[in-house]
Each structure stands twice: as structure tokens, then as C-alpha cells.
Write a protein that binds this DNA or RNA. Structure first.
Length: 299
DNA sequence: GTTGAGCGTT
């Protein structure tokens, strides 16, 4: 058997696309997935039995049913019952659109092959939608991949779609999930100050101020020294601060996580900050600063 | 130069 093209379609009634086989006549699942992201196999209607038959799949390699692939149209298989999930997804996103544009967040990608690079991730996930950030986490010393990474999409629908299925990346099944850092209901109190996690050392007070200005008036930026990979940003309006909590924002190509700046002690009943504010703004600032530590989730 | 559930600081 020699190299050829086989006809593959999303559905029996849809127009097929021709995809190439290998020299030995087999077809790689990754070749199918390149055109049909999320594909996990192929099936076809047997001319003899008129039943759908599965194509043999061994370690990412699809084998022709008979001596060759023939002129049949092969239909793409997706994990579980993806069609029904799509309907649920559309209904869910329709509800959410009414409440405004959904913010996307970083997704953790688990199970990456050691060899997979950020370019590989970008290439793969771009088939779902516009990608605005990818990371492969590596050992600082050896540079070896830790086997997981992160991805961020422009559109929320893309994020939902990507989370709803498994992913064949460089020969391994990977999962995309919401990272633990943003799981569970946190965000307890209302504050004008937010905690900015995962800062990099090159971020300056000025740059953070410039960046956060787009959301509202910034009254203070505090970066602990020596470098501790987080910062505090205070807004004039607490609603601005609250609206950012839980979000992943991208500053200079780095994804930072916004959460509430949590007070470690609560002495405000003895010395309400409003008392200091009318008397002395600088004292009020000192007071606020002494009250807030990093949230427990980041300790 | 190894590994395979997890969780992001260069």
C-alpha cells in the first residue's frame, strides 16, 4: 500500500475533507486531529453490514479496515458524547451573554509530553480559537518540562470548548482545567486594595500603575522588597477593585492573578480608617498598609 | 540521559 488521501468528515452528510496517509498506508490520529481538533478516532459505514464500524487504532495510528482505505467517507469520533455537550454549552453561554461578556481565565494543561514546547501548545490550541498566552512549566535548573503548562484564550466560548474535551498533544492525552488557584469561592471582604499574585521582578510600580489605570483611578501601588512575586494595588473605587478580583490579567506577557487583599488583624473597630483619612491621609495609608497581608491561599 | 499526579515566582 502506498501514500494516499482518505476522505474524512465531521458527519456522514457533510462534505468530506481529504487528509493524507503515511507511506505505509496508515493514518496518524494526529493528522486527523490537525483538521478536526479533539478527534479521538474514526468510524465508517460498512458497505456490507450497513452498520457503523470503528477503525482500528493502535497507539495513535489508524489502520485501514481492509487492504486499503477505499473510497469510503470516514467519520470523526469525539470523546464521549460531545454533540450533546455542545448543546448544553450553547445554552449555558447564552445565559451568560445576557449578563455581559464572560472573562476568560488561564487553564492548566495537565499531562504534556516532556518534549512539548510552548510553540507546540500555541499551534495546537490555535485550532480552537485565538490564543493570547501559553506557558510550559520547566525546572529552573535543567530546563526540563514539568509536564504541565497554561493556556489563555481570547474568547470564553473557546475556553469552554477546550475544557469540555480531552486533548491529544504530541501523542499523549491531556486535560485542560481551571487551576486550583482560582477554584472555590473565595473573595470574602470588600476592599479598595487588591493582591496581585505572580508578579515578575521586572515589573515596576510605575508600570503597574500605568496598567491598572485602565480600570479606574489608582491611589497606591506597593511592591514588597526584596522581590516576593506579588504586589498590592489600591483603587479609589472599591467597586473597581472588586470587579478585578478572581481575574487573570496579562502584564508584559505574564499572567498575574488578582484577589482580595486580606487583612491579617482586624483592629478597624478601634481605629476606623475614616478617622485617619479626614485627619491625615499619610497616616491612613500607613494604617492600611499595616492591616493587609497576603491572602492565605498565597502563603 | 530517569518521571506521569499535580497546580503558576527566572
Amino acid at each position: 500500500m502506498t501514500e494516499c488521501y482518505i476522505r474524512v468528515a465531521e458527519d456522514e452528510n457533510e462534505e468530506p475533507m481529504e487528509i493524507p496517509s503515511e507511506e505505509d498506508g496508515t493514518v496518524l490520529l494526529s493528522t486527523v486531529a490537525a483538521q478536526f481538533p479533539g478527534a479521538c478516532g474514526l468510524r465508517y459505514r460498512s458497505p456490507v453490514s450497513q452498520c457503523m464500524r470503528g477503525v482500528r487504532l493502535v497507539e495513535g495510528v489508524l489502520h485501514a479496515p481492509e487492504s486499503d482505505w477505499g473510497n469510503l467517507v470516514y467519520v470523526v469520533n469525539y470523546p464521549k458524547d460531545n454533540k450533546r455537550k455542545m448543546d448544553e454549552m450553547d445554552a449555558a453561554s447564552a445565559v451568560k451573554i445576557k449578563r455581559g461578556v464572560q472573562k476568560t481565565s488561564d487553564l492548566i494543561v495537565l499531562g504534556l509530553p516532556w518534549k512539548t514546547t510552548e510553540q507546540d501548545l500555541k499551534d495546537y490550541f490555535s485550532t480552537f480559537g485565538e490564543v493570547i498566552m501559553v506557558q510550559v512549566k520547566r525546572d529552573a535548573k535543567t530546563g526540563n518540562s514539568k509536564g504541565f503548562g497554561f493556556v489563555r484564550f481570547t474568547d470564553y466560548e473557546t475556553q469552554i470548548k477546550v475544557m469540555s474535551q480531552r486533548h491529544m498533544i504530541d501523542g499523549r492525552w491531556c486535560d485542560c482545567k481551571l487551576p486550583n488557584s482560582k477554584a472555590g469561592p473565595d473573595e470574602p471582604m470588600r476592599s479598595r486594595k487588591v493582591f496581585v499574585g505572580r508578579c515578575t521582578e521586572d515589573m515596576t510600580v510605575d508600570e503597574l500603575r500605568q496598567f491598572f489605570m485602565q480600570y479606574g483611578e489608582v491611589t497606591d501601588v506597593f511592591i514588597p522588597k526584596p522581590f516576593r512575586a506579588f504586589a498590592f494595588v489600591t483603587f479609589a473605587d472599591d467597586q473597581v477593585a472588586q470587579s478585578l478580583c478572581g481575574e487573570d490579567l496579562i502584564i508584559k506577557g505574564t499572567s498575574v492573578h488578582i484577589s482580595n487583599a486580606e487583612p491579617k488583624h482586624n483592629n478597624s473597630s478601634f481605629f476606623p480608617s475614616t478617622f485617619f483619612m479626614v485627619k491625615s491621609p499619610s497616616l491612613a495609608a500607613m494604617f492600611e498598609r499595616s492591616q493587609y497581608q497576603f491572602p492565605s491561599s498565597h502563603v
